[in-house]
Write a protein that binds this DNA or RNA. Structure first.
Length: 287
DNA sequence: CGCCAGGGACGAA
DNA sequence: TTCGTCCATGGC
């Protein structure tokens, strides 16, 4: 893999196991949109970018080499050997089919605060709506970022939300989740919840800490652990995951989280993403 | 355990 | 058009 600066962006050659569609459309993030040319535009770590990819290269428009090395390489998880991961978890035809289907998924390493707030908003909610709410939150409280002739917005920091009220959040369309978001922001502001501290803890301890936040249950906690704190042993289970686990791996009434974590171990999070993307897309096509 | 919390898409009637 | 149901759930 080699990266170099070219045409207002960074071109990375020799990349395998990467697809923008799979990565940005597998439900782990809410700030990326597909353009007509199959590239995706979005914001991460207060930087806007447009990302396109073909069979063995990625082009990230809007950044320089330094930003690639410091931010985007890690954000897109490009330093990890996904071939090895697939080999390890593919010991049956189900995982083989799932990994073939979502072959280009990468688990993004997202900012902790953004991930926490976004997934609280996601509970009992649909992706298109979550994206709208998050967008309005960024427009109202984030910083402007000029890019490609348009204005984008950073995800607001906890400091930027210091004076926001529950009513402000409700006005953005969060519904009954407004009070959860308000409480979570306060906990981050006081330092009671700290992403860097959580990252240092083992998965079980970090999960317990996250569950103390009003509005955070198992599902939201596991998503935050997996998508921002690199706790790859987590196996978030929603209705789709419950379905695909019962269709393939569970006979009776065993717990899907336990079965998944037992079966896939330290790579549970990757297995979860392949299974989720595969099963959810299949469900959509059918109807 | 069962219902409820906003609000909009979606399909059936 | 209208109505019921569903939706990356958690709290009470």
């Amino acid at each position: 893999m080699i990266a170099r600066q070219i045409n207002g962006g960074v071109l990375i050659d020799g990349v395998e196991h990467f697809s923008v569609k799979h990565t940005f459309d597998c439900g782990q993030c809410f700030r990326w949109d597909a353009l007509d040319d199959k590239s995706y535009v979005g914001v991460a770590f207060s930087q806007a970018a447009r990302i396109s990819a073909d069979d063995n290269s990625i082009f990230i428009k809007g950044i320089n080499l330094e930003q690639y090395e410091n931010v985007w390489k890690r954000y897109l998880d490009l330093g990890r050997d996904y071939g090895k991961i697939k080999n390890t978890i593919c010991y049956d035809s189900v995982m083989l089919e799932a990994t073939n289907y979502g072959w280009g998924i990468r688990i993004l390493r997202q900012e902790f605060f953004e991930t926490l707030i976004s997934f609280i908003i996601s509970q009992r909610n649909a992706i298109f709506r979550i994206k709208g709410i998050v967008k309005r939150l960024c427009e109202k409280f984030g910083n402007e970022i000029a890019f490609d002739g348009q204005i984008y917005y950073s995800f607001p920091s906890a400091q930027q939300l210091k004076n926001a009220t529950e009513a402000d959040y409700a006005a953005l369309g969060m519904g009954y989740r407004a009070k959860y978001v308000y409480e979570a922001v306060q906990k981050v502001l006081t330092g009671e919840i700290d992403g860097e501290e959580l990252e240092k803890m083992d998965t079980a301890t970090a999960r317990k800490e996250l569950l103390k936040i009003y509005g955070v249950g198992n599902k939201v906690a596991d998503c935050v652990l997996l998508f921002s704190l690199a706790k790859f042993g987590c196996f978030p289970v929603d209705v789709w995951m419950d379905r695909v686990m019962h269709e393939n791996y569970i006979d009776g009434k065993e717990n899907a989280i336990a079965v998944g974590e037992e079966r896939f171990g330290e790579y549970s999070g990757f297995a979860q993403q392949y299974l989720f993307y595969w099963r959810r897309d299949k469900g959509r096509i059918k109807k």
